[in-house]
């Protein structure tokens, strides 16, 4: 009874771990890029930013931390590049304490790729405020009550682009990138649902996505869920603004997507193998 299937049934899971490690690591080293096919939802999200008149004000809450960087950094980069191409004013903020570092990365990107963008005039870093979804509730009616100064401590009265901004209902679009609660769900629940004037698009992790689909399209225009839509977003953006494609690392989602590709097929193979093992050794199948 000691067939290969029985041996496989007792397979040390560390072999699977090693396989996973290689499936992700090797494609990343090669840097191969695969073509993407753009889905309609991605186009909706792109259009939400693209059809706004130049110089529109965009609230960009980045509610994620370094652990989700692998998934969300590429789309945050794409959103910021796209907004900067359209010369939109960007209001960065976060309700995650670790989100501050994520905002700093985006500001570094703006400084590097869009040296003309001026702090206070074209973008502002409002920073972190504690209070979970309470922050969202508050700023839908009164922004300066909580944000009387920016991350550096500069009073908002001295920041040109904060003049006349009383609440976030005045900003035509929220572009949220989030990896959990409080995050996109709370932005939909407390900002976009009660106020018709607030429109929202989001970028989120694949995990969060399944609970957020029911909000589309009534409560949210659309969202990018994970790396694949982020890569598609890059593609749409490159088509409209080809100069972005020239910059280093602007196709980060494309690069990451190759590892995803290999990992997905590896996982499918593992699942099929697991089932083959079950059938071949049936009688003792099921969970152990």
């Amino acid at each position: 009874m000691n067939t290969i299937w029985h041996k496989l049934a007792d397979l040390d899971r560390r072999w699977l771990f090693a396989l996973t490690f290689l499936a992700i690591g090797i494609p990343l080293l090669t840097g191969v890029v695969l073509p993407q096919k753009v889905s309609p939802m991605v186009v909706n999200v792109f259009d939400a930013i693209d059809t706004l008149p130049e110089g529109s004000s965009i609230l960009m809450p980045l509610d994620f931390d370094p652990s989700a960087e692998g998934e969300l950094q590429p789309m945050a980069n794409a959103f910021v590049r796209h907004c900067a191409e359209k010369k939109h004013k960007i209001y960065f903020m976060t309700i995650w304490p670790q989100g501050v570092g994520m905002i700093q990365r985006q500001i570094a990107l703006l400084k590097k790729e869009y040296p003309d963008y001026q702090y206070g005039k074209d973008y502002v870093n409002l920073g972190y405020r504690p209070g979970y979804e309470g922050v969202i509730k508050l700023i839908t009616s009164d922004l300066p009550k909580l944000y009387d100064s920016d991350q550096q401590g500069t009073p908002v009265s001295q920041i040109p682009m904060m003049q006349g901004i009383d609440n976030i209902q005045q900003l035509p679009l929220i572009v949220n990138v989030s990896s959990g609660d409080p995050g996109l769900k709370q932005w939909v629940q407390y900002a976009a649902t009660p106020y018709d004037s607030i429109e929202i698009v989001g970028g989120t992790t694949g995990v969060q996505a399944s609970t957020l689909y029911p909000y589309i399209p009534n409560q949210m225009i659309g969202m990018l869920a994970g790396i694949k839509p982020a890569a598609e977003y890059e593609k749409v953006m490159f088509e409209k603004y080809p100069e972005i494609e020239e910059r280093p690392e602007s196709n980060l989602a494309h690069i990451f997507m190759t590892s995803q590709e290999v990992a997905h097929f590896m996982l499918i193979a593992i699942i099929i193998l697991g089932n083959l093992v079950m059938w071949k050794t049936s009688g003792q199948g099921g969970r152990s």
Binding site: P53, S57, Q163, G164, D166, Q170
Partner: peptide, 12 residues
């Protein structure tokens, strides 16, 4: 007491 951008015809 406040300003709004062009194109907006309301204020609270």
């Amino acid at each position: 007491v406040g300003t709004v951008d062009a194109g907006i015809d309301e204020y609270v």
